[in-house]
Design a protein around this nucleic acid. Sequence first.
DNA 1: CTCAAATGTTTGAGCGCTCAAACCGTAACG
DNA 2: CGTTACGGTTTGAGCGCTCAAACATTTGAG
Lengths: 337, 337
Amino acid sequence: MAAHEPATLDSVAARAGVSRQTVSNVLRHPARVAEATRERVLAAIRESGYRPSLPARQLATRRAHAIAVRAERQQDGISGLVLDAFYHGLAEAGQDNGLRVVLYAQPADEAAELEIIDDLVQTGAADAVVLTATSADDQRPAYLSGSGTTFCAFGRPWGHDDEPHDWVDVDGARGTGLAVQHLLDLGRRSIAYLGWPGDGAEPSTGSDRRRGWLETVEAAGLGAPVEARSLNDAAAAEAAVASLLSGADAPDAIVCASDTLALGAHRAAVAAAGGGTPATVVGFDATPVAAALGLVSVAQPIDQAAHLCIDLLTGRFETPDRPARGVLVPPVLHLPA
Amino acid sequence: MAAHEPATLDSVAARAGVSRQTVSNVLRHPARVAEATRERVLAAIRESGYRPSLPARQLATRRAHAIAVRAERQQDGISGLVLDAFYHGLAEAGQDNGLRVVLYAQPADEAAELEIIDDLVQTGAADAVVLTATSADDQRPAYLSGSGTTFCAFGRPWGHDDEPHDWVDVDGARGTGLAVQHLLDLGRRSIAYLGWPGDGAEPSTGSDRRRGWLETVEAAGLGAPVEARSLNDAAAAEAAVASLLSGADAPDAIVCASDTLALGAHRAAVAAAGGGTPATVVGFDATPVAAALGLVSVAQPIDQAAHLCIDLLTGRFETPDRPARGVLVPPVLHLPA
DNA sequence: CTCAAATGTTTGAGCGCTCAAACCGTAACG
DNA sequence: CGTTACGGTTTGAGCGCTCAAACATTTGAG
């Protein structure tokens, strides 16, 4: 606990009676050092409480040993909570791979964000970026590919298969498929879908989730599937589902593209049931809101996704020119406690 | 956009026809450089797209220009969402002060966490730490004070006034006071409190929130205040409130120590009302759950708190021995949209 | 006109590490 | 018994910056 001068490679070397480089080798390339020497050096390291200087290493290796990730400006309501788990996963997986995670504040627009990323990379504060919340009209992947910045996206390159890059995403179709299956097991026979406007037209998260529902419902050989759309807003969702439930062929279950939609759907269902059994609602994201309402919801394995992002990045650090790789992880169904 | 060798202090200096140090001065101590020279150097910097190397600076100044903050292992249910906003606030305020924010994954226990913090500081990855979620029996502040690590806590040093340190906290009493006042304005006359077990005994977040309720209710000169306690769990809270509402002197409003408690209270209130007007519930933290249920909730000004943490830290960097300082920020009442 | 004090700029050294190349014994080979 | 080879180790150089001190140049006072 003494407040000595902090130990350096040289001070440890002197103590162990070897050269600076040998100490470094013990740490970075243990195989190069003879057994006996290694023991002695390790002892010296332990005794002196030596901690290698990160900045010095960064300077010498020209690598930051860090990745950057964006801190969202503000959680857009119900979802967004998933990010906390993502941050933790990144930090954890990063620690295991000698990578630190640095946060940058989401600025006003994409252009400003790209500037920040460039800055982080060029100043040597980060080697790579993890992009979150990517969408089809996202400029960032193309720009980063163009500028040669290493990155991994959490989210598929929707509609940009021509510009491949590393990505990790959750299999939304699989998730809604699980939801439908669960409802079928529960005996539901008319399973509707509540999605976002535009789902199904262009490739997107929404289209993907809708597809999983559609395919599973059709595979079950049930009647013509019913669906509604709404902006990601509980009130709007409630209205949309209310009209869906007032129709002649009212469904007995509703799979939703998000927990926000599920909240609205749930309200509408309870109202429409008028004391009877309301249609069963399944959400997406397994947020506390779904849990609070006692709804089943599709949970994204965020932690796993974060670890995979780190894996892809470390892989690319080692083999910079390997072809782009994408990984799809399966979600799981979360039943309320 | 050319992929030249990245510019350095020397390359810029050569281009501007001055010495290395002058370029450095232009950036760090503009006053030391003559107007004309400065212009010329700035032009050279612009033309060459020079970005100072962070690692080099860190090595030379022996400062990381970064602070560390913990990424929570897992959001404990409803609350915890606040952290996202906190991270963003830290990153934003940090950027304005030349501080980067690095994340570390919350490990299994406090001892392991302290080890990680030590490591970050000793390797020069961070100059200071922002502690989150501090509690009365928290070992971390004392340890960090002892080891001379600079830090700022988001949370008061409950019951540890003997070991002062920098902190920022939200005025919980003020928050519940606002809640009570709001209910009084609404015409409620019997305002109960739902808190956590032990609130009121020892100094703590819970005691603080309870005190705000108690003082405001007493100041209003209403009848003897009623209260209940429950673990931070919706089901437990529901049970606690149910028995509260079944009593003779059932309250017409309930102020809660958290949104999780509020959720339970809300359910109990709706059930007890049996179709009539349920008791009004006010939550704490203004999470999406409260919004989803249409509940009023006390919102913590997280962004402001984060900025204040950075202010305290930068202040301490400049004046390491100034006395410890604590800042209390007032919360605001969030009405559902 | 001289000298000292400003003012502006450069030089030298060093932060702690890693790379590549040089070095040194000793074992294996012809 | 000289030569090559090789595991193990050391040396030199340099990553890009900042500090402190040294060095010019100008200015104002005596």
